[in-house]
Design a protein around this nucleic acid. Structure first.
Length: 676
DNA sequence: ATTAGGG
DNA sequence: CCCTAAT
């Protein structure tokens, strides 16, 4: 039986990488188990990180015991609203500590199919509270309601009924809490493994937890007070009952998924969802008021990505210059510690030579050099940094140069925003930033090979990293097939990392096109350092690009730039007018087909818009008009046609029944010669 | 995927 | 041109 979990309604929020579900293969299962045991997969942490974000603002006022007043978030509505308005700042894990608690509601929906091909659906809703009331105790309680419809026999106990369970995860610790939360070291106790949330819903692939603005769903979207409020991916709104958490697995197999999505109609195509998600993430509106953004400079282009999708229609690809889009990314990573969150990681820390940088800036991936003698410095030199695969689409006619630029921009879009670097040692994430390298063990030879760095979204710092460094094993475990990277930097350029532009291209790499200024030159190491803003990593759920960098710093990425302006020529206007005269307004697709069939850069929307402006132009005085003047004759026809079609709803049916003829009669004087 | 409108 | 909502 194949199951597919559903994502919620076009959610556009921060998605936190998370809980890998128990893999199927024995081998992976073992690896998975290990991950759990190693504390790399812990529900509490996950929830905590989410909770922490909320706590950020209300930390002080949070009640100390979440188990009480279960259904009442420790935050007043007012606080939350404030939150949203001001934007939610990414929280630091350190901020989540004693005395804090958080409650969240979650909803999981699973669409599946049983042997008889009947659609199944399993919805879980519940309330989760994360409590960290003391220095050494973390507790997660969850009331879960499961509604199973035609659940598969395999899960027999859940067939056609409502199941309510209470799940408690408690983590009493013996150690101190570091960085806010300590990881569960005991397999099975409070880790996700013991959680029904994961177990029962875990299907295949990898589970992922994300926060979603509860109010933003397919329906309420428009009216949602947050609709125009814009909030960063890291923010989330809540309804009366709290944040909405969702668990879902990755779309391991899109095709398969597609198949199921057709079933429960309510289940939207994942791709669509992703698409929507991305688009929303990219929507400038949603970001401009993002919390930490100092200014609104952030332009769409900064968000570099896919809105392009929509244009990828038959008329599509109009991007003339940089018309390339990063459409999606396929994870095909079999190596590195690419995290489930799609973060990119440096795969290799190779031993590179002297060129290494000083130890003071070990920010990015690199390789260490064992300190020689007295020199207590550890030198790192980056061998390469990888990023998840970016699927780029460019017109056949684009030049190699533009392709290069496109790639550069794509990369810059990701790196430009700054990312946080996670350090992984022997497969485990080094969470304590305050420890010294020596203390951490990043100074001995033995560890060199197991040291790796991982770029991750700053805003996710507090969240657990599922996939860790020691790539070979664990990564594969939780995230088998994804992510191929584009080597951003791979060479012995190690030394340049420091003083000069991070990405030093061999000069010729980028053509001297003016636009090529898409500089890598600006990408200095600091951009990779922790202070950078945020990068939203949208798990490669579907075919969409998974990484959406978010940062005002990325001014340059013209990635998803606005299409280059292409004023309509008189000839085009003529063609448009002619077509409209015949077809009328409201049939832009036909107009497109008829008059701009081969003008890929003119979409029917463009034509419609142009018509709109033409009408306007024809309405205003000649002095007010701008741009290449349009013959008055044409404008007259525009007005005539506009007037005509305004009356006769052109909409309806085909061809020009009463079309042109009538028009000409009516507005004879200004009419164009003839149509047929 | 289109259409209709607002920005 | 862009962005969305509604079809």
């Amino acid at each position: 039986m194949v199951l597919k979990k559903r994502v919620d309604h076009g959610f556009d929020g921060l998605r936190v990488p998370v809980i890998p579900k128990a893999p199927r293969s024995a081998r992976r299962r073992i690896a998975f188990k290990k991950a759990v045991e190693d504390g790399q997969v812990c529900a509490i942490e996950l929830l905590a990180s989410l909770a922490g974000q909320l706590l950020q603002e209300s930390e002080g006022s949070a009640s100390s015991n979440a188990s009480e007043g279960n259904h009442h978030p420790p935050f007043s509505q007012g606080v939350i609203e404030q939150d949203i308005q001001d934007g939610v700042k990414p929280l630091k894990k350190e901020e989540i500590h004693q005395g804090s608690c958080v409650e969240s509601t979650f909803k999981t929906e699973v669409a599946s199919q049983n042997s008889s091909q009947k659609p199944l659906s399993h919805t879980k809703t519940g309330h989760v509270s994360v409590n960290n009331s003391s220095d050494c105790c973390e507790k997660v309680e969850a009331d879960v309601k499961s509604e199973i419809f035609e659940w598969d026999n395999k899960f027999g106990n859940y067939s056609n009924r409502l199941v309510e369970t209470r799940e408690n995860f408690r983590k009493s610790s013996d150690g101190k809490i570091k960085n806010g939360f300590k990881r569960e070291q005991e397999a099975g106790s409070s880790c996700i493994r013991g959680s029904n949330l994961a177990d029962k819903c875990s299907l295949e692939g990898h589970l992922e937890l994300y926060v979603s603005p509860a109010l933003i769903d397919s329906k309420s979207n428009k009216k949602s007070p947050f609709h125009r409020k814009s909030f960063p991916s890291a923010s989330f709104s809540r309804n009366g009952n709290g944040i909405k958490l969702g668990f879902r697995d990755d779309d391991e197999n899109f095709l398969r998924c597609k198949k199921f999505c057709t079933k429960p109609k309510a289940f939207r195509s994942p791709r669509r969802i992703a698409h929507r998600r991305i688009r929303n993430l990219m929507s400038f509106k949603y970001w401009k008021t993002a919390p930490k953004l100092k200014d609104s400079e952030l332009s769409r282009s900064d968000l570099g990505v896919p809105r392009y999708h929509k244009r990828k229609t038959c008329y599509g690809f109009e991007r003339s210059q940089h018309n390339a889009i990063v459409k999606k990314r396929k994870f095909v990573d079999r190596v590195s510690g690419v995290t489930s969150d799609g973060g990119f990681s440096s795969e290799s820390v190779s031993n590179s030579p002297q060129k290494g940088m000083d130890g003071d800036k070990p920010s990015s991936s690199a390789k260490l050099h064992v300190p020689k003698a007295k020199d207590s410095h550890v030198k790192f030199s980056i061998k390469s940094i990888r990023i998840p695969e970016l699927y780029i689409e460019v017109p056949e006619t684009s030049t190699v140069g533009s392709l290069k630029r496109t790639i550069v921009e794509a990369v810059m879009a990701i790196l430009g925003g700054g990312a946080h670097v996670g350090v992984l040692l022997q497969g485990k994430k080094v969470r304590d930033d305050n420890r010294t390298l020596v203390q951490t063990g990043i100074s001995c030879n033995e560890n060199l090979d197991t040291l790796s760095f991982m770029l991750e979204p700053t805003s996710l710092q507090a969240s657990p990293t599922v996939c860790v460094g020691d790539p070979s094993s664990q990564c594969e475990t939780s995230q088998p097939t994804r992510s191929t990277e584009i080597p951003v930097l791979d060479s012995g350029i190690t030394d340049t990392l420091h003083d000069s532009p991070l990405l030093t291209y061999p000069g010729n790499l980028i053509e001297s096109n003016h636009e090529s200024t898409s500089s890598l030159a600006d990408t200095t190491l600091d951009k990779l350092t922790p202070d950078s803003r945020a990068i939203v990593v949208v798990p490669a759920t579907t075919e969409t690009l998974a990484v959406v960098p978010v940062s005002q710093k990325t001014k340059r990425s013209e990635f998803v730039q606005r299409r280059t302006r292409r004023p309509f020529s008189v000839t085009e206007v003529e063609a448009l007018v002619h077509a409209v005269e015949e077809l009328g307004t409201g049939r832009w697709r036909d107009v497109k087909l008829r008059a701009f069939e081969n003008a890929d850069h003119r979409t029917y929307v463009d034509l419609k818009d142009k018509w709109k402006t033409l009408v306007h132009t024809a309405t205003i005085s000649p002095q007010q008009r701008r741009g290449e003047p349009v013959p008055q004759e044409l404008l007259d026809r525009v007005l005539a046609a506009h007037a005509f079609w305004s009356q006769h709803q052109a909409k309806q049916h085909g061809k020009h029944q009463a079309g042109p003829g009538t028009l000409k009669i009516t507005e004879a004087s200004a009419e164009r010669p003839c149509v047929c």
